[in-house]
Design a protein around this nucleic acid. Structure first.
Lengths: 235, 235
DNA sequence: AGGTTAAACTAACGGCGTTAGTTATTTAGA
DNA sequence: TCTAAATAACTAACGCCGTTAGTTTAACCT
């Protein structure tokens, strides 16, 4: 498995392309991924990039995958590193880490969520597995939370309409997890809640209303967890 | 105030530009707003468009304003047309209309929320008033909901941390409305919830989990309202 | 009817992604 | 070790894009 010299060079070039792309994306926005600009900053001719990615969209897809994994890594270390056995704390940490990652890596967040780039549409067979990793982590965390004995299902979730219950159970079987429908619903709803708050903040739609959206976010997540019986430390 | 012939022509040209732009946006995505393509479809030369909008961004801004107003109109007619005095029903209708509008006008939704277009950044002095119209409507609806005697503030919202409360009260005074902080928080949180669910659905992130996201959305909004004491009819 | 104004045009600049064809360099096999 | 294959760089070019400058045609007002 020893690499030849060319293979080593090729790998570093791959890395450099992605790195420069990331840098330009961070400086000038998601849509500013320009092969010509990347090439020029690297001191090479634009068409040469086609030896590495067969199109601009392919490069974006590579960045997208890295973004998904970066988010998943962040959530994992933030939640799984919590030394307590309190599932609520772990969930809390994960949701806070979600916002934190999104704000720190706003272009990656735009890449993941929404349709951030001109003609680009993410190929499903690529993004789906990456997204599943994150979903899987939240399933794990909610499963742990479920097993806490303070955990309760809020009154308004005790009766789920048949149609929705069937969908949730179909998903449950497909994924091979053991969460009851109400908890799956909670998972999805809280995910939407978190993403909604983050994107409102990130895209400036809260600017007129809140000076420090973090307190809003934190309080809402805390309330959400309190609703299911999981209270979280004040710091 | 009688218009000259030229003024009439000018107005219809303005309208045609926006219409063609909308059409191309709907067909090929938000980012496909191309002055050259618009001009060619209209049978004129691209630079002539500069007699109407001083740049591509200006055209986008015009579309953005129309989108905001279209959404606001939709929400108004959906909610204010509810013939009951049940504030919960009106809120429910507004939230359902929100999703419905977003799905029917997905490119406009992308325009409003997020940063959908290459170099484009919406000028705040333009978008802020338009956004305020929608916010104002929700404030009105929540104010009405507040006055229902079944309305209750959920336990987890009764104690708002000082920092957040101050922010909410600052907003309250600035806007000249009379909603208590907990209700303002509810307003923002439910807005984030709705937008989060819609964007998850619209950008395909629920595809692996739910076949019919409408039932999910409806149930969650219903639960949200039930949580504040407002139960909503089954249809 | 003639002068002014507005709206169309053409030509051009510099940017973009991408393809085709070419040249130099590294690798692998005889 | 010498040679043939494969790889990675290059240049030139096509057809898009937004935008500017300069020019011509048409509509308006007096």
């Amino acid at each position: 498995m020893t690499q030849t010299r060319r293979e080593r060079l090729r790998e570093t070039t791959f890395a450099e392309i992605k790195s420069v792309a990331r840098q330009q994306m961070a400086e000038q926005g998601t849509a500013a991924i320009s092969l010509r600009a990347i090439a020029s900053q690297m001191g090479m001719a634009a068409p040469s990039l086609y030896n590495y990615y067969k199109s601009r969209d392919d490069l974006i897809t590579a960045l997208l995958i890295e973004a998904f994994n970066s988010l998943a890594d962040t959530l994992e270390t933030a939640s799984l590193a919590i030394p307590t056995k309190n599932g609520g704390e772990k969930l809390f940490a994960a949701y806070l880490a979600y916002r934190d990652w999104a704000l720190r890596n706003s272009t990656d967040f735009s890449l993941i969520t929404g349709s951030p780039i001109p003609g680009y549409h993410a190929p499903e067979n690529i993004t789906t597995p990456a997204a599943k990793r994150i979903m899987g982590l939240f399933q794990l965390l909610w499963r742990e939370a479920c097993s806490q004995n303070q955990f309760i299902i809020p009154a308004e979730y005790t009766e789920i309409p048949d149609g929705l219950r069937q969908q949730l159970e179909a998903w449950k079987e497909f994924e091979g997890n053991y969460l009851p429908p109400a908890v799956l619903h909670l998972l999805l709803a809280s995910w939407a809640q978190a993403q909604g708050m983050v994107s409102l903040e990130l895209y400036g739609q809260l600017r007129n209303n809140l000076k420090e959206p973090f307190e809003f976010y934190q309080f809402e997540i805390r309330s959400l967890l309190k609703r299911v019986g999981l209270s979280v430390q004040n710091n």
